[in-house]
């Protein structure tokens, strides 16, 4: 069994409003690929109900940072009461969705994921000493890398959802923006 450490615990994004499910999914997919993670889609659940769709998505992208350390991200996305809406964007009709989104991001770091240092009690003891005292700086750097990746994913999702927060509301023009103001 590899040694597991919870580095990022429950980074949550909550949003209620207009968004596009396919774009959000592709955004996360793109991010995972850009950062060099291997995709692992544990569960993709879609229920069609009279109140709207219920979608649950559980992703666990992973990456072998070295032959001793592996990074795992747990991304849980829940979309509740999702309905299709059509909005006007710059005169063009665009298909979007309206509902509630909950995104929870966790970051886990596994050391000795191949189990080479736990075959005997002495090896296990040596591994623990190394991890806690001798290899501390390197372990800290690996943790910082994972925190950075999780934080960037959090900011990306939050930024995308905030972008659509005021899509349906008409833009209020200030007097200076009227033509012929200057």
């Amino acid at each position: 069994m590899p040694e597991q450490r919870l580095v990022v615990d429950h980074l949550t994004v909550t949003y209620s409003g207009i968004f596009n499910i396919t774009e959000l999914y592709q955004l996360v997919d793109n991010f995972i690929r850009e950062k060099g993670f291997d995709k692992r889609e544990l569960r993709n659940q879609e229920h069609v109900t009279p109140e709207g769709k219920y979608i649950e998505l559980e992703l666990q992208p992973w990456k072998k940072v070295s032959d001793y350390v592996r990074h795992n991200m747990r991304v849980l996305i829940r979309m509740i009461k999702v309905k299709e809406v059509t909005i006007d964007v710059d005169g063009k009709k665009k298909k979007m969705h309206k509902g509630k989104v909950y995104v929870i991001i966790d970051g886990l770091m596994y050391t000795d994921f191949e189990g080479r240092w736990e075959q005997r009690p002495f090896y296990f003891f040596l591994r623990t000493i190394f991890d806690k005292f001798i290899y501390r700086t390197y372990t800290g750097q690996f943790e910082d890398l994972l925190v950075e990746n999780c934080g960037q994913l959090y900011q990306t999702i939050k930024g995308y959802l905030n972008m659509h927060r005021y899509v349906s509301a008409p833009m209020k023009r200030s007097p200076r923006m009227e033509p012929g103001a200057f």
Partner: peptide
Amino acid sequence: TWKFHKVIKDYLRMECHGNLY
């Protein structure tokens, strides 16, 4: 197998379809 997974999701017309891998 990822491609197979994508084919199934595309056929069921699930919202979270597509796969960059």
